[in-house]
Design a protein around this nucleic acid. Structure first.
Lengths: 348, 348
DNA sequence: CGACCAGCCCAAAGCGCTTTGGCGTTCCCG
DNA sequence: CGGGAACGCCAAAGCGCTTTGGGCTGGTCG
């Protein structure tokens, strides 16, 4: 069933039918109702390809998710993020395109997408420090919003970010207030901007109390359970091990937990842990009392905000750059307590 | 830069340029080279909207991921699955459309997608027992492949599935060989077909040794960490608790681990656990010695296979139904050991 | 009463590509 | 040397929609 058929069934022109369905004023209320009834009856759906060609808009948004550079790790966070964003797109009649690509191919992908005209806007995931994609997209001229920011990029652009620096500052201060002064950081890959900011926040809090940077207890890597586990084992094997750990994700925190378990150490009593919690739907940090003391920020909500910004940018491109900085909730759970002496690993 | 411009720059007709670029034989090798050079020079990319309209194919595949019915949980497994599938699509020039939708809206979504002609094929995720979507899609006539199967659907269709029944049969037998006869099952939601099959495999193994079904130690729910935790607490609080547990996912298994930890019980020594491991990139079951004894089946590979099937179906629709049953790897890890007496929960 | 203006509706021209149906050359072979 | 196939190219007709630029009523106002 296409426009032509529907129009002839109704004894109207394609123009009128099209206008009736798209809410233009040049058509009487009576015929509009008649048209709508007929459309519903025959389950008429305008062909999206034809519509896209005619209007020049494809009603689609691209999400381009970079694959972890070393081990092809897909960041599980993006599942919830896209669920949030997708719901907003759907409200506006947009669909979601998804590409999961290696960093090396990224430049090409962005160029292709722009030249082919497949989408009306782009979401940039996992920005790096001084990320070249931002300038590229500015050249290309397609509306885009970055989930996160990129330190060192001077120009202005649309973004939604969590205040990672402040969050990790707070967490570090919280631990120091409990008497910890050897605090390890198990971070994501620090080429990624969010990880760099977290490190900066952590270091600035330490510095404010006269504690210098100890590269030996700052570790970064892909945010896997194994990274959390192996790093914790390594850190606690040091001659002067940390008494508290800051984890860049809940998944890392679970790795920490397993390591402690292996070593016969207990959270809170022997060692304190604070984790960043993206509030993933399948990985709840305890429904009642949080397992981990955490910096909580719903990545799903971030997805929604990013999507809303992009929708706004597309509908009125001249409205200036839009930016949103989200603060985390600091939730106190069962994984933190006062510092005692250096924990002794009773190898289990 | 569009076809018309490129053609006039070359002093050729649009027809010839189009054919040259699409590899048709009616154009001489010399001009083909000339055209290709010009196209590369001007970074010409055919407008995908126009191409789609002209060919009637949109070069896109839809993935429709249902949202967990009760708590809007996004299954994290699909991130890796789509990474696998997406790579295959890219090789064939297809892009990925993603919708994450509530079950209640699903029927409508499928109908709309078909009527609007947005995609050339569909992947069905998370089929339920007697899933109505299969019949619906057969009516609609769009090529589709199911990731999993649907018990009780009589007609034939394309699918790729893991042999869940056999896997859980093996795991149950393995535990019984170790002397366990009270084995708990912490399953996904059993309306979902994979979970139903796992249950069936588990029950059939028990039955083969004369052990009947005990509904008290078979629990199902959303596959979250919390489900694993809470269920384990509940099961081990029973008067006659299980000595071994079968977990439908690694995430559940991590919940189990936390519960055991809280109770002061140790994996292997006090209780044995086998988990189904989707081999998620960020949740490795130990790079060297597996943490959990596990039924391993890479969901990323499953994504690839599903995608390949769909590509084949689209390119030659008459080739008959295609089905693939993948067997799991049974890997023995550190979480299983011989049954001792009933573990006593030393409440910690 | 005539001019004008809304109010409704329509025909037709794109959007940028593919593809059908031909049209001139060239080349080969009888 | 002439006829026909083979080759290489082109003009134009779609694909299904939107949108421009009217055109025809019927009502209103000077």
């Amino acid at each position: 069933m296409n426009l032509k058929e529907l129009a002839s069934k109704l004894g109207l022109s394609q123009t009128t039918v099209s206008r009736a369905l798209n809410g233009y004023p040049e058509v009487s209320e009576a015929t509009r109702l008649r048209v709508e009834a007929a459309a519903a009856l025959h389950n008429y759906q305008p062909n999206v390809r034809a519509k896209a060609l005619a209007t020049g808009r494809s009603m689609a948004i691209a999400h381009i998710v970079p694959l972890g550079s070393e081990h092809e790790i897909v960041n599980p966070v993006f599942a919830d993020f896209i669920a949030g964003a997708g719901a907003v797109y759907a409200q506006h009649g947009y669909v979601t395109h998804l590409s999961i690509v290696k960093e090396t191919d990224e430049q090409k992908i962005y160029r292709d997408i722009a030249a082919k005209g497949t989408v009306d806007g782009i979401i940039v995931h996992a920005p790096r420090v001084r990320d070249g994609r931002i300038e590229l997209l500015q050249q290309i001229g397609l509306p885009f919003v970055v989930h996160g920011r990129s330190s060192g990029v001077a120009s202005d652009y649309n973004w939604v970010d969590v205040n990672n620096r402040r969050a990790f500052e707070r967490a570090t201060n919280f631990l120091m207030d409990l008497g910890h002064h050897r605090i390890g950081l198990i971070n994501g890959i620090e080429e990624l901007d969010f990880a760099a900011r977290r490190r900066a926040g952590y270091l600035s809090a330490l510095a404010s109390r006269g504690i210098g940077e100890d590269p030996g207890i700052i570790r970064s890597g892909e945010m896997t359970e194994h990274h959390g586990y192996a790093t914790t084992r390594a850190l606690l094997g040091l001659p002067d091990p940390p008494t508290a750990l800051l984890a860049s994700s809940m998944i890392i925190a679970f790795g920490i937990r397993r390591a402690l378990d292996d070593l016969g150490l207990r959270l809170n009593r022997d060692i304190s842990v604070i984790a960043h919690d993206d509030d993933l739907s399948y990985f709840e940090n305890g429904p009642d009392i949080p397992i981990f003391t955490a910096l909580r920020s719903s990545v799903r909500q971030a997805g929604q905000r990013v999507a809303r910004l992009l929708m706004a940018q597309i509908s009125k491109p001249q409205s200036g750059f839009m930016q949103e900085l989200l603060e985390v909730d600091f939730v106190v759970g069962q994984s933190t307590g006062p510092a005692r002496q250096t924990p002794t690993a009773r190898q289990g």
